[in-house]
Design a protein around this nucleic acid. Sequence first.
DNA 1: TCGTTCTTGTTTATCGATATTTTATCTGAT
DNA 2: ATCAGATAAAATATCGATAAACAAGAACGA
Lengths: 234, 234
Amino acid sequence: MPAPERTLERPQAEAGTLSERAASLIEQDILAGHLAPGSRLGIVDLVQRYEIGATPLREGLSRLMSRGLIVGIGQRGFRVAEVSREDLADITCMRTAVEIEAVRLAILHGDAAWEAGIISTLHQMRRHIERTGNEFREGAADFDRLHKGFHTALLAACGSQRMLAAHSDLYDQAYRYRRVMMAAIDSGEGFIRTHQMLADHVLARDVAAAQKMLAAHLHSTIDFVYPSASREQS
Amino acid sequence: MPAPERTLERPQAEAGTLSERAASLIEQDILAGHLAPGSRLGIVDLVQRYEIGATPLREGLSRLMSRGLIVGIGQRGFRVAEVSREDLADITCMRTAVEIEAVRLAILHGDAAWEAGIISTLHQMRRHIERTGNEFREGAADFDRLHKGFHTALLAACGSQRMLAAHSDLYDQAYRYRRVMMAAIDSGEGFIRTHQMLADHVLARDVAAAQKMLAAHLHSTIDFVYPSASREQS
DNA sequence: TCGTTCTTGTTTATCGATATTTTATCTGAT
DNA sequence: ATCAGATAAAATATCGATAAACAAGAACGA
């Protein structure tokens, strides 16, 4: 049998079909900020950039469109989705709705493996901060993966594939805003403490406290990125 | 200038780009039951069926994939999504999460126009039942459009585009199951009364009552379609 | 009976052509 | 002289057909 060929280099960056690779590549470039919000995504440019044909590129673009990172207007091509306060508020709104219910269901149905997952991912996140010190600005992508892992672990036992998928999509959409916030974090102390408390509430099966803290945690991004008087109440 | 060419024949069935038309057509055929759950969606078959080229068809298929009506496996083509009790439970779970929060926000932010929309759509629905009698099985598609309009009107003031879009998608996904339920409804009396009460709770700005009734309403589909002992609690 | 290979049907990707949009320039009017 | 409008040209997206790659199934041989 052939060697497994490093397939775990980047998450599904080397996936089988070219359409998926195109979608993955473009998504990563948008999330990383290499493709600025509002940029025109000309087919020919992308063909040269990624060395992928026009058809699989269009297919990947179409797939990304439904994830909210791309907007495509009829016959006028694709653009990277704009960032705005309204959009972040919308994302947060939807995230709150999904996660409030998902964490409730997870607390109801969660078993020992679920609890272990929360503790494990929280530990990994703490270790990462300890290792890299307070300077996790550079390795933001790596750290964010752990952060996403923790929040996913919180909801993992909710029993709904759609909820987990929606959470994953919304988390990725919020990443572009979170990048701004990350640079403003001075110490990892408060960050870890916040998440520790969140985990404690969840593991104590305290639905109300967990929901309240989760909602506040989600809203904190808005206040950080757009520090105007927040008129959106929970 | 040229004549406007009947564009309102079916909602975006004659949309500009062929990809959208393909997506719309396939979606309608899946929802109407012409394409059975689990059916293979061979490209050549679809090309003959819709007289649309392979490329826009693939693009429409990709777009539908993210809406949950189509599943596509790597290099093994596309299939219509299966129906199952677990899938319906998943849809209901997600719908509950979204609508519970959306109706809360709508009640908070809703203005007079929002109230008027609820009353108007409820009235249309009642009139439709009165006109067609208790036999709204045949015109299920028309009636369902009014039903969707009412539920959309309930949430219209939630202020979140993503929530409204998610509601629309989930409503469509549930349509295949609701078809089964519609045939079991004997009289439109209870149906209208239920929705009248729901509207009353919402218009009275009673968040708790509206949420409770909405959740029960969503769960009623599960009990109708899969009348086994429901182990999923709200 | 099991493994290998060939064949067939399928999906997927590339290329070329058409129609649409967009931009820039030119003309006319204020 | 400047601005608005219209026309033309260039660029761009969409579409359809052809070719290659992949997976599954069947047949043959061990």
